[in-house]
Design a protein around this nucleic acid. Sequence first.
DNA 1: GGTAGACCTGGACGC
DNA 2: GCGTCCAGGTCTACC
Length: 351
Amino acid sequence: MAGEFEFFWRMWSFMGSRLSITPPGDYVLWRDVCSYGYFLLWPNFWDPRGGTFSRVMNLTGGPARVTISQGGGTRGGGKSGRGSGHAFGDVRPGTALACVFDRALTAGEKKEVRGQIARMLRLDEDEAHVAAFHKVDPRWKKSGRARLFRSPSFFEDVLKTVTSCNVTWPGTLSMNRRLCEVVGEGGGFPSARVLARQRASLLRARCRVGYRDARIVELAKLFVAGKKGGVDSEWFEDPATSDGAIHRALIELPGIGPYAAANIMQLLGRYSRLPLDTESVRHGRAVLGFKGSSAQVMKRVHAHFAPFGGQAFRSYWFEMWVHYEKKAGAAHTWERDTTGRVFTAANMNKK
DNA sequence: GGTAGACCTGGACGC
DNA sequence: GCGTCCAGGTCTACC
């Protein structure tokens, strides 16, 4: 009997789990994943030829790699008329998402990973939510753009934002890759618990995070402390918490200033504030035609998008994203290690 | 409240 | 191959 049990246990472990997730009726994987720069940051990987997204997920029973496709994630030429050049571009919106894992998951892990995938892909933003945005800014109704890719956890979103501050985009790519390779379990993004145990000097030397080292460890410790005097993720994710309270709490965190706080707020689905940075100034000058000092252009960009109210960030972002795509091609065609390194305005200007 | 300078890394550039 | 300069947002000190 013991031999039979071992045989079945081995077989069960060897076979990877599969999940089917029904997204909102207008959901398009290639459009809604390749909508924000974080889809290019490790451990995330978008395969522009296959139309699949994969990464290592941190689960209770250990790391597990998932590959997500919609309508099979087929290869080859398509007839989408969207310029995708891929069959996955023709997938009917709302088609079920197929999630394939590299190991068997327990029932508890399946529930856990469904929540993480829903967060990452913004599956909570249903058709009515999208329509509310398009009502305010109809420019994006035809393309259906509305959802912005984010991380499976609030902690990863905060860390990714910290690694995007005061550094050029290739530096952000490098820091995220090294954090996953050096500290992450099984190549996944390091959890708060793991990072809280690290020495700042190790993060600086091996992950090349520079002066952010101590701030990252401090942030991780705050997330581990949670409700006990630290960062209570549930409170931040609770729609009942006011924008003002969240902004005040974020600014108090180490390494989080006005730009990072506004960016984390959009990652929490709160789109009223604009994370204005040097890219915004370039956009203000190059696309909107604003003149003056950086501070003056920033003020004008802010005023320009103010009429969009609670949707300001998405109007601002898609305007800038479309500008990137005009220069570098559609985002779902970007290779992480080539176009994905140079798509920002700062790099395109150098060209 | 506004401003200046330090903080680090990686890439570009000149020699 | 080496040295120098620059971009990038946050934090602190100072006015």
